[in-house]
Structures are given as structure tokens and as C-alpha cells.
């Protein structure tokens, strides 16, 4: 590593730190502000959907965004390519 690279790497470390922190703290704050019922809502929705479609925990994501005074509950469900009908006996 040349002298130039050495200084270049150093110059950037504070910038890298700031960028990482800004992203991290924005995410922390979103998580902190979301109502506590969201994880439970996610679990219950998953149970209902599971009755009909074969999906995993990771296939359902819920986020709550706030724009001005409007709250948007976003629900994302990734369905498997060939939905398998649950057998009933």
C-alpha cells in the first residue's frame, strides 16, 4: 500500500462512519416508533395465510410508514410460484 493509499484510506474513514451511522440511526428510529402490536399482527396474519398457502415467516413483511399525518401500513407477502393447495382430511 503506497503512501497515497494510506492517506486516502484515512481520509475516508470518518465519512464512512457518518454514512453508516446515518443509515443505522434512521432505521433504529423507525423501529422505535412503530407500535408494539406489529410483530404480533405479522404472526397472526402468517397463521391465517398459512391455512391456504404454503409460506414461511420470511415471506411476510410488515412496515408502518408515516407521511405527514397519514399512516401507511404496508404488507408484503411473497407467494410461492406454484401455490400448493393444503390437504384437508
Amino acid at each position: 500500500m503506497g503512501l497515497f493509499d494510506y492517506f486516502h484510506a484515512n481520509r475516508r474513514s470518518a465519512e464512512v462512519a457518518k454514512e453508516r451511522l446515518s443509515i443505522l440511526i434512521a432505521r433504529d428510529q423507525i423501529q422505535r416508533n412503530q407500535p408494539s402490536f406489529l410483530p404480533q399482527l405479522q404472526d397472526e396474519l402468517l397463521e391465517v395465510i398459512k391455512k391456504y398457502v404454503d409460506i414461511d415467516q420470511d415471506d411476510v413483511s410488515i412496515t408502518l410508514d408515516r407521511e405527514d399525518d397519514c399512516e401507511i401500513l404496508e404488507l408484503n407477502i411473497a407467494l410461492p410460484e406454484k401455490p400448493r393447495q393444503r390437504q384437508t382430511d
Partner: peptide
């Protein structure tokens, strides 16, 4: 160290 870009500056931390 802030001048050398090795440390978050007062302004960086205040911004955050």
C-alpha cells in the same frame, strides 16, 4: 484526527 478525516467531527455528530 478530525482534520485528517479519521474522526467524526462535531458537525457530523450534531447532524446525526
Amino acid at each position: 484526527r478530525v482534520l485528517r478525516g479519521e474522526m467524526l467531527s462535531v458537525k457530523d455528530i450534531q447532524d446525526i
